[in-house]
Structure formats: C-alpha cells, structure tokens
C-alpha cells in the first residue's frame, strides 16, 4: 500500500463521515478506543488504536480485541469498495494470532477488500504494533446488502 489511495465513491465518503462522528462521540466501545484513520481509500483502510487496560488478560491485551478491531475494519474495507452504502453482515472470520499486544502500545489495523462477487466480499486484515511487530492476521467474508436484522457489525 505505497501508492496514493484511490478515492471513495461520494456516497461512501459521506457515510464514513457519519460513522466516524458516531464512533468518536456515541459508541461506548469505539469512543474509548478512539481509532485514528491513517489511510482510507477504495477497498483499503488503516487505523491506529490505543487499547485501554480494560482489555487486559494477565499482563497483555487479550487477542479477542484484535478480532473485534479486525472485524470492524474489514467491514469498513468492504464498504470502502462499494458505490453506494449498503448494510453488511460478517459471514465468517478467521483470526490467526502471532503475539499479544502490550498495554499502552498503539496498534495499527489494516484491511484490504480483495473483491466483491455475488454480494460476498473477500477481505484480509492485519494488526501490528506501531514498531512493526506482527500481532494478528485475519481473513473474512461479508454479505453485502443484508435485509434482515443481521446487518452491519459496525
């Protein structure tokens, strides 16, 4: 991801502004994690997060937090690849853990939407600590345009 990001579709860019406002002001989980966008482009998202001690299990951050962060950002990577905003549902998600994050250490989460076929997106994600240490990788699929109650995870 060294080239400049491709611009989002206008409707998606507007939706993201609303999501970011809701995250930072209203959502009890994400307002605490305060994700900072590092890169937002067509089909790709990167954010930086500083996890609080609330997610400690022993001396390190529980890897479940990586799953929470990666599910969120991988859904957003799917949205960023769409022309118009539609509800999403995670179909499945695999997270592989390399090592655990330490408290107070920033985490960079990146996701790339590889493509969307028959309303199913294929997405991969990665979490690293800010010094570049791998924390976890993820692969997931998302249903685009759900009509039932099972819509977006965000």
């Amino acid at each position: 991801m060294t080239d400049a990001p491709q611009p989002l579709a206008p409707g998606i860019a507007m939706a993201f502004q609303g999501i970011q406002a809701a995250f930072t002001k209203e959502h009890p989980l994400f307002s605490e994690l305060a994700p900072k966008p590092l890169r937002v482009g067509r089909g790709e998202i990167a954010v930086r997060v500083t996890p609080s001690e609330r997610f400690l299990d022993g001396d390190t951050i529980h890897p479940g937090l990586m799953t929470i962060l990666l599910d969120t950002i991988m859904g957003m990577a799917t949205w960023s690849d769409l022309e118009t905003f539609q509800p999403l549902a995670t179909i499945n998600l695999q997270t592989d853990t390399y090592t655990h994050a330490k408290p107070g250490e920033n985490i960079v989460c990146e996701a790339i939407c590889e493509g969307i076929m028959d309303d199913v997106s294929i997405v991969r994600g990665k979490a690293t600590s800010e010094d570049g240490t791998l924390l976890a990788t993820a692969a997931g699929t998302f249903m685009v345009g759900t009509r039932s109650a099972q819509v977006s995870r965000i």
């Binding site: 479940g64 929470i68 990666l70 998600l93 819509v151 995870r153």
Partner: peptide, 12 residues
C-alpha cells in the same frame, strides 16, 4: 441502529 452484538465481540 439495529442493536446487534458486535461480531468481533461474539468471536472474542
């Protein structure tokens, strides 16, 4: 809006 559990929270 739809008040579902976060998928990542379920998995975690």
């Amino acid at each position: 809006v739809i008040r579902a559990l976060h998928g990542g929270v379920i998995s975690a």
